[in-house]
């Protein structure tokens, strides 16, 4: 298994998402960002972010710590709202709907735009209830179909066989990787259109990383992924679009192969070659 992981890192084309670039170009634009500026109090944290993202893409957000990747990611599902002094300017639209508008139904937005965190965060309830928590919160299905939803979600993430007989157990008895897959299954159960992943594999072992990455490539084009990652190898492996953030600015954004092989900005060149960050 160890070899597998090393091999994929050596070959940037292996493990590329199954979706062909041509089909992505034809797909509808799901996420549009225009002149986005984000700040806390008098400090501007991110500026000049523009992006057109087609359905079924996998986007990597890379850049040094403190460059604004996570802040950008968390403003797509408005998770920064509670942070005191937080403000935004510009536009983020998902399928044409303005995310930053005060009138948007936040609960519905977050059902459509799911999120996976750096550290797996199962809820303190049984494995089964974890999967159903979102379904119940949004009243998405009748009780009679709950069993099917649990099975289907767990099968999608490849956990079904491991937990089939202990659905009523505590999720905290699972390994770290399994917990993260459970959280992914929990997000999938509410049928999101976009999933935001905040360094989802940085706390996992190589085998679990591979499992999560394979899963991401399998879930497109139904779901569009935006992934913050510190692993350049991972960005290369999984994404077809990469955004490089540096010092609160979107330095460069384009097809992953271009960012890694022929970047335009010297900062990008420095970062992707491993001489910075």
């Amino acid at each position: 298994m160890q070899d597998l992981v090393v091999n994929t890192e050596d070959d940037p084309h292996k493990g590329q998402p199954a979706t062909e670039p041509s089909t992505i170009e034809l797909a509808e634009i799901i996420l549009n960002v225009q002149d986005l500026q984000i700040g806390f109090g008098s400090k501007v944290v991110i500026e000049e972010v523009n992006l057109d993202l087609r359905k079924g893409s996998i986007v990597s957000l890379i850049g040094p710590t403190g460059s604004g990747k996570t802040t950008f990611l968390r403003s797509i599902n408005r998770m920064n709202d509670k942070v005191s002094g937080f403000w935004t300017k510009g536009h983020i639209t998902i399928s044409g709907k303005e995310v930053l508008s005060p009138d948007i139904d936040l609960l519905e937005l977050r059902r459509n735009v799911g999120m996976l965190f750096q550290r797996a965060n199962p809820f303190p309830m049984s494995i089964r209830e974890n999967i159903l928590s979102g379904v119940k919160a949004h009243k998405l299905a009748k009780k009679s179909s709950h069993d099917d939803i649990v099975r289907d979600s767990l099968e999608k993430v490849g956990l079904w066989k491991a937990v089939e007989k202990r659905l009523s157990d505590s999720p905290f008895r699972l390994s770290g990787g399994q917990q993260q897959l459970l959280c992914l299954a929990r997000s999938l159960a509410v049928q999101p259109r976009v999933l935001l992943l905040d360094e989802p594999t940085s706390a996992l072992d190589p085998i679990s990383v591979e499992a999560v990455e394979n899963l991401i490539s399998k879930l497109v084009p139904e779901i569009t992924f935006i992934v913050v990652t510190h692993s350049l190898a991972q960005a290369k492996r999984i994404s077809n679009h990469t955004m490089f953030f540096y010092d609160g600015k979107l330095m460069e954004s384009g097809p992953t192969s271009k960012i890694f092989e022929d970047p335009e900005m010297p900062e990008t060149q420095y970062y992707v070659s491993g001489r910075m960050g």
């Binding site: 599902n77 998770m79 936040l106 609960l107 519905e108 937005l109 977050r110 059902r111 799911g114 999120m115 965190f117 550290r119 965060n121 199962p122 809820f123 303190p124 928590s133 979102g134 919160a137 949004h138 959280c183 929990r186 997000s187 509410v190």
Partner: peptide, 17 residues
Amino acid sequence: PSSYTEGAEALGFKPTR
């Protein structure tokens, strides 16, 4: 832990829930 509440917020739970 704030990770519980964040996870629930990100899933679109109502605050009361």
